[in-house]
Nucleic acid binder design. Sequence first.
DNA 1: CGACTTCTTGAACAAACGTTTAGGATCCTG
DNA 2: CAGGATCCTAAACGTTTGTTCAAGAAGTCG
Lengths: 240, 240
Amino acid sequence: MSSTVGSDRTSARFPDRSGKRIPDLRADRTTRARIRDAAIARFPQDGFAGTTVRDIAADAGVSPALVIHHFGSKSRLREACDHHVIEVLGETKRQALHDGTYRQGGTLAALYQVMEPITRYLAWALGSGGESSQRIFDELLEDVIGQLRELEADGLMSPMRDRHRQAATLLVMQLGPLVLHEHFSRTMGVDTLSAEGMLTTAPFMLRIFSGELVNPQFLSEVGSALAEVETRGSYSRKRK
Amino acid sequence: MSSTVGSDRTSARFPDRSGKRIPDLRADRTTRARIRDAAIARFPQDGFAGTTVRDIAADAGVSPALVIHHFGSKSRLREACDHHVIEVLGETKRQALHDGTYRQGGTLAALYQVMEPITRYLAWALGSGGESSQRIFDELLEDVIGQLRELEADGLMSPMRDRHRQAATLLVMQLGPLVLHEHFSRTMGVDTLSAEGMLTTAPFMLRIFSGELVNPQFLSEVGSALAEVETRGSYSRKRK
DNA sequence: CGACTTCTTGAACAAACGTTTAGGATCCTG
DNA sequence: CAGGATCCTAAACGTTTGTTCAAGAAGTCG
């Protein structure tokens, strides 16, 4: 009711003394922020309905009533979490554009190394529908499209016909390891979200994207089979 | 309201007259199966905690008490759902091995076309941890490994060093479009889980796996950069 | 038919839930 | 220091939750 500021500034007691408007994502250790972070950690773990206001309050070291006081309701708390994560995502992207991180894998890779809870929340939010889930996906999609365009312009990638759809396909495949990081880590033997894990998995991914795995003959076979289906309407099986 | 259930004359009254133990996944329209299917449809939509026993009961057209009577508890109902989906998965795999479906994309592709609710549940179960989530993933992984081995033997794929990890990487990337099918469909303009959708997305995926997207020079650059990191400990950025 | 088992339900219960309320504690401002 | 705003809590409220219980239909078997 009282403090419904979207991006809560650092410490309500120190109303921005310096003109700094960049939200320092580490320093805002407001109680409000602590509650929000507790929720961001809980929702991916137990789900929205599975997380109780009392759980969040306990994690943040406050009373359940305070959670409601700050965010109005449980679902508005979730909206705040979504908003916050989207903001961090955008901030990371903006920052990644200024140092070299961007060219080495884009926003996602940069995010991995920044804050794990955010990444976890992102993966969860993407999986469990909703409108901000769409917004997150679209934001990531725009990111990939921009990356592709840039790589094309630099001659590092072949120009493609339908860049939008190609980017979407690329994105969902890139997000697979993120959303399923639990299983992925277990199988790979490292935490695939960590820096070490990314170095471990990179060669395997490279081998996929390079096309060195599949035999050219096999590829052209499948390709022509697909072309055939496209021209006709039906699908005639073709072995060997 | 009215206690009449109308048209459903379910055949739960026939114990197992014949020795047939193969679960005919279509024919068991017992009340118990109806409840289970209602749960399979609900859990991915609202989450486990978000789904109430009363919801499931209403969907199945029975009383909440009957749900408990048949499955003991809500969590045991979930276990039954997990078990059922794993069973269907295995059955589909076994069947796919006997017709030609297997060679055209493996179990997943076959499943897509069989039953959508199962696929939806699978995607959800994979995302929300748990032990049967692991079992599902491992089952799929074994599937991919077998596929790779077979393709290698036939000379359609280059032999690889670490087949287990390579398969895991391949799997999580393949599962990306499945788990995020909602966003994927929205962006691609078709239901990517449908037969039509799979034909639409196939060329884009092919273009990724063929390696025709990335410039060979770019690839070798990244590759050598990775090799460099592997030999040293740290990561020295290297542009152009 | 009557006894037996199975399927099914309405009513009720204790626990847990999100949220409200009234008020204490703490800090800022003049 | 007085006054007011803000931060925070304990206790309670009404609702919803998973689950139990006793009993009613309905089919099976002798």
